[in-house]
Amino acid sequence: MRIDATETADGLIVTVEEARIDAMIAIPFKDRLRELAVGTGAARVVMDLSRVDFIDSSGLGAIVASMKALAPRPLELAGLTPTVAKLFRLTRMDSVFTIHPHPVPPAADGS
């Protein structure tokens, strides 16, 4: 399970380094996000999914669970690849999450 988290002036940036968020890793994924939710004081969390090319319904459930664990802080998503964007559209989760079209740019020095 490779998930990087970086505190920036804009909030906590969570970068998922896995190619797939599926039934195989949904539970450890959810656990890791819960840990991050407890450990951060950031007012906003942005999850960069630009390296993820496939999410199934279990993975989507894990992302929804992560959003609940973070509430009332928003969980925003960035950089959805085509099949992942399709999944969010078909399940109407694209109107539940704030979705940024582009990946999170690397944090600028001195921010």
Binding site: T91, R92, V96
Partner: peptide, 25 residues
């Protein structure tokens, strides 16, 4: 799908998306 968009974030389901996806696609 319409039920998903009403109510609180805390009420969102964490499962059951599978058959919705199959039926949509």
């Amino acid at each position: 799908p319409h039920r998903l968009l009403h109510g609180d974030v805390c009420d969102l389901p964490e499962g059951g998306f599978g058959w919705l996806l199959i039926r949509e696609l």
